[in-house]
Design a protein around this nucleic acid. Structure first.
Lengths: 139, 139
DNA sequence: CTTGACCTTGGATTAAACTCTAAGGTTTAT
DNA sequence: ATAAACCTTAGAGTTTAATCCAAGGTCAAG
């Protein structure tokens, strides 16, 4: 059994984060001392690691809450339940990547067109491009 | 001259958005009627389009505020001022893409390992991977 | 018995870019 | 003259994942 500060240190997070996870139903200490101090067990520690690993692969806390409920009752769920969530998240990530790639491509185009020198911005190609409908069409 | 609703419609945004831009110093109508109604000129419209095009290539409103100040006083700025901001934004976008690609790669690995079938999640490879230190190492 | 390191709570704050609400004023058309 | 469609304001709410703060309680060491 360890106190919140010890667990936080092991995990490399702040105690605030652990309390935040508790408030949001992700991780509660298995015991409290008479004075209210939180005490975390080895299983709590494992659960915390599970949470952090989920975060590491891109799941949101809402997703993780969902995964945790599968984790504590595996026999009521099947592989598909888990895999479908993983796939959904991957698709979500891929969509965000695609959006960012559009940004990147546009920015690269803008960079290419501009001399980037000490010349006055009076005739800057980037500003011009942002002024007209073109690569950056809005309507 | 047009009212806020007309400009919003032309731009495909809400009137709220235009008021928000005004409050944040991005776009103010050049006139107000006696009763306080906002009236936007053609130049205001152009400025709004500039803003939306900047958004479209990935600039934040803070970035745009900065670009607008260059735009209204081009002679005091040079191409490099504009290009450096564009490059900084591209690098920023590329960093975000790199992070998301790590997520995607991890998720793809997880998906590969899991059968995704009707089997009980008792021995689900995804759950197992999230339980152990591995691809998803946290410490 | 006091110091310092720990812990408790509730509530406020952060960033970004809106979006919504309430309560009311203005314009245009009939 | 009244209804519909517009406009005004201030201020609160949304999302995500914490992070910070104030005021105070607890615990081990010396």
């Amino acid at each position: 059994m360890m106190q919140i500060g010890q667990l936080a240190k092991k995990l490399g997070v702040k105690t605030d984060t652990l309390r935040f996870y508790e408030k949001n139903g992700l991780l509660a200490p298995s015991t409290r001392s008479d004075s209210g101090y939180r005490y975390y067990s080895g299983a709590d520690h494992q659960r915390a690691l599970f949470i952090l690993r989920c975060k590491k692969v891109g799941f949101s806390l809402a997703d993780i809450k969902d995964l945790l409920s599968i984790r504590i009752d595996k026999s009521s769920h099947c592989c598909e339940d888990v895999k479908s969530r993983t796939t959904a998240k991957r698709l979500d990530v891929e969509m965000r990547i695609a959006e960012l790639e559009l940004f990147r491509n546009s920015l690269v185009e803008l960079e290419k067109a501009c001399c980037g020198g000490e010349e006055s911005a009076e005739y800057c190609s980037i500003l011009d491009a942002l002024e007209e409908k073109g690569v950056t069409d809005v309507n």
